[in-house]
């Protein structure tokens, strides 16, 4: 049976770096999915995750609820994604290249094409819309959790989700029509 987040945080604070390695391994892929879709390419997503883990380690004493380490770390990841995304926007390097996972079932080629279509559409959304859409529908957060993670209030988040959904639907329709 694996240790709880709280136990691993306590061991890390006591100087056990192996315990922190377990936390990294536990959250690398789950939060990495959000980072991948948010910044639009694997290389920058990996930079986001590495940087987030490093910052989280340095600030671990600020983690008031170690049993909710994942939620606390998620806030750091969201902020790092915003920073990297702003840099990418300035550099005009946002590509919308997305994780190229081969599906376990079904037609791999068509599924990959469909995945690329979605990523292109997602990448063309405004960052705040993309963020809200991913948090709501991909990460499954409730609106109060989204408010804590993003710092935005719930009416604004509901509107961003709605606008993102509308725009994504139009974009996917255009892709299929072309």
């Amino acid at each position: 049976m694996s240790d709880s987040d709280a136990a691993l945080v306590a061991r890390t604070l006591a100087g056990d770096l192996d315990a922190y390695a377990q936390l990294i391994s536990r959250y690398r892929d789950t939060l990495g999915r959000y980072a991948s879709y948010m910044v639009g390419n694997r290389e920058d997503a990996q930079e986001v995750m590495q940087d987030s883990f490093f910052r989280a380690y340095r600030s671990l004493g600020d983690c008031r609820q170690p049993e909710r380490f994942g939620a606390w770390l998620f806030r750091i990841v969201v902020n790092r994604c915003r920073t990297v995304q702003r840099r990418l926007s300035r550099d005009r390097q946002f590509t919308g290249e997305l994780p190229s996972e081969v599906p376990a079932n079904g037609d791999a080629t068509s599924s990959l094409e469909w995945g690329e279509e979605i990523s292109r559409a997602l990448a063309s959304l405004r960052p705040h819309y993309r963020e809200a859409f991913l948090l709501r529908y991909v990460e499954g957060l409730e609106y109060d959790e989204m408010a804590k993670v993003t710092g935005a209030n719930q009416p604004a988040l509901r509107m961003r989700v709605k606008r993102a959904s509308d725009q994504l639907r139009e974009l996917l329709r255009d892709i299929h029509a072309s």
């Binding site: 990294i24 391994s25 690398r28 892929d29 990495g32 999915r33 991948s36 879709y37 694997r42 997503a45 990996q46 995750m49 590495q50 883990f53 994780p99 996972e101 599906p103 599924s111 469909w114 995945g115 979605i118 559409a121 997602l122 991913l134 529908y137 991909v138 994504l168 996917l172």
Partner: peptide, 15 residues
């Protein structure tokens, strides 16, 4: 689209 986006993503363990 959401179902597709919710698939697991594996980043490089080298992280």
């Amino acid at each position: 689209a959401v179902a597709e986006l919710r698939r697991p993503v594996a980043l490089d363990p080298e992280i």
